[in-house]
């Protein structure tokens, strides 16, 4: 009984140390980093255990990723590429979908890939999924189109025709 109690106390002490200790360490570290305008020395996946301030980056622009597939027999001219429905691959709300497509994986994944390799892996999976679901209209290559435009209060896409809108393409995959 005494041994069981001591074991329980030891475990609870360890858990408390882990939780409270990490909170005590992480909050001031993140705040100090924000104040000094330097990246947090902690890996983001650890620092976010306390949850840093969301919406900390302000922008007057709205941004969106869309998926584009290169049909068979077409070249690298994006005007020939076909837009793919993002919801079919990233079924999330608009804000979370953007995060998912930006693929802010913290650190590296299990294969030791860096972020560009993560995008390539995602692009390969988008292509595979599209070709499985739409075998009659396969694509050989996948690209992101990133668009940024001045935000308007009348609606999310209201400013897309603005002359200040910026469009960029990022090819994610090699040709299959």
């Amino acid at each position: 009984m005494r041994f069981k109690l001591r074991g329980l106390l030891a475990f609870q002490s360890l858990l408390a140390l882990l939780v409270v200790g990490s909170d005590l360490l992480l909050v001031p570290t993140q705040v100090w980093s924000a104040l000094a305008r330097v990246p947090s020395p902690l890996p983001r996946e650890v620092g976010s255990l306390v949850c840093f301030g969301l919406f900390s980056n302000n922008s007057s622009n709205n941004m969106e990723f869309t998926l584009w597939g290169r049909p068979l027999g077409t070249g690298t001219n994006f005007s020939e590429w076909r837009q793919l429905p993002s919801d079919e691959f990233f079924p999330f709300s608009r804000g979370l979908q953007y995060n998912m497509m930006r693929a802010e994986v913290w650190g590296v994944n299990s294969s030791g890939q860096n972020q560009s390799e993560v995008h390539q892996a995602l692009g390969n999976r988008v292509r595979h999924r599209h070709n499985v679901l739409h075998p009659d209209a396969p694509v050989t290559q996948i690209a992101y189109r990133h668009m940024a435009w001045p935000a308007r209060a009348v609606g999310f896409h209201a400013g897309t025709n603005s002359p200040d809108a910026v469009v960029r393409y990022f090819v994610l995959t090699d040709v299959q």
């Binding site: 858990l15 408390a16 939780v19 409270v20 909170d23 005590l24 992480l26 909050v27 993140q30 705040v31 924000a34 104040l35 306390v50 949850c51 840093f52 301030g53 969301l54 900390s56 980056n57 302000n58």
Partner: peptide, 22 residues
């Protein structure tokens, strides 16, 4: 422990926002 963590969560995010000029 959850209550303590929630406390740090709120305090940390508030302090972080306080540091942000925007």
């Amino acid at each position: 422990l959850i209550a303590i963590h929630i406390s740090f969560f709120y305090f940390g995010t508030g302090l972080y926002k306080l540091m942000m000029p925007d």
